[in-house]
Design a protein around this nucleic acid. Structure first.
Lengths: 211, 211
DNA sequence: ACTGTTTGTCAACGGTGTTGACATTGCAGC
DNA sequence: GCTGCAATGTCAACACCGTTGACAAACAGT
């Protein structure tokens, strides 16, 4: 075996990203962390993009383990929440999804799980495909939006939300009456809970198509 | 007045992005297009990020003009489609959604429009806030995911989707039976239509909360 | 032990955003 | 008019970035 392996590189990369943030992550920094020449990484990954995908896939390990067998809704809901949690925990991943197809094992397992549950629930092939894409777009897209704020301390996050609310409250009440009136009610609860609500409403809507 | 103005820079930047794609957009290219030194741009924008935000702001102009007055669903649907269209046309925006967003006029107009329609439709304050966030997260998130493929030629896009489908079809049918079976049905229709479907199902689900 | 592939190292290429020093322009106030 | 000052454009340079090709060391198979 070689000194560097894909596994060790991915593990080190996750550490580096946790350290310096996804924005500052670079091949050179990763090389430093590995005490190896940065270009050695290209012996194991064709490009940085391929490396990032591998990192993303590793973070999705276990997403489809021990799922509730109760209903298709509960199952898919849980999968989506776990995907979100994985993406928010390592915020770099959310940004690198970029519509790339799931070529890796964990991503494929997720697809297989969601699709099969939908089919069991009575979705026809076309309906299952549409429902799958709908649920995934909401989950991944929402995580991409929320990830920047997910990695800062809770106090700072709260302060940011409060700042945004007061921005709305300070608007011209003539031009933006409803925004001003509702300012205090915007960004309610936590970002996780807002996602949960959106996912539940989407699943409600999808349920209607199969009954 | 100076030879370069923020307006002219933004206009040129939009042209350049349309030409070479968001990925290849750089300050140097923009300088070439303006027949000026690239660093002259920094006399009008503090950073590339600020420039991108200005581009984003302009691209959202007109999103809330002449909306259908019929139903709240039609109205919000139309707003979301226009936001998506704006984001996909100027894909650079998708990548900058992640930063802490300063409130710009067009963005505020969109918020006001959606919130007021929801309130008129009978949503209470809390429900309108949740529905607003749900709809926006799906719209912006989905656009962020779809934008990389939105700016390539249709033939190349079709080829990419076909490649992804055949990736699924080539999987081990024992481990991924449903994925293999449904391979040809994945990524159905266009990305716009898939988003439309997801949005409609989400609106269906939101409708249930207000009846 | 010889050979050929794999892996690590090094220098370098072409690109990026951004900064500071310098030259030029335009415009206020006298 | 002129002067002085701020705004604007130009240039060179910095510190990075992802990636490639040539070369050396280590390993595998025969």
């Amino acid at each position: 075996m070689s000194r560097l392996t894909p596994d060790r590189i991915v593990a080190a990369a996750i550490d580096v990203i946790a350290d310096v943030g996804p924005e500052q992550f670079s091949v050179r920094r990763l090389g430093d962390a590995l005490d190896a020449d940065p270009t050695a990484i290209y012996r194991h990954f064709r490009s940085k993009d391929e490396l990032l995908r591998a990192i993303g896939d590793r973070s999705l390990a276990g997403v489809v383990d021990d799922l509730p067998a109760s209903s298709w809704r509960d199952c898919i809901r849980e999968v989506c929440m776990r995907i979100r949690a994985a993406n928010l925990a390592r915020p770099a991943l959310a940004s690198l999804v970029r519509g790339a197809p799931p070529r890796h094992r964990n991503e494929l397992l997720i697809t297989e799980t969601i699709l099969s549950r939908l089919r069991e629930a009575g979705f026809d092939v076309a309906g299952a495909a549409m429902a799958y894409h709908a649920v995934i777009e909401l989950t991944i897209g929402s995580a991409a939006i929320d990830s920047p704020l997910a990695c800062v301390a809770e106090s700072e996050r709260d302060r940011t939300y409060e700042e945004w609310r007061s921005d709305y409250a300070a608007l011209d009440a003539g031009a933006f009456p409803v925004s001003v009136q509702m300012a205090a009610s915007l960004y309610p609860q936590t970002a996780d809970q807002r996602f949960e609500y959106a996912l539940d409403r989407l699943l409600d809507g999808l349920s209607l198509t199969v009954m």
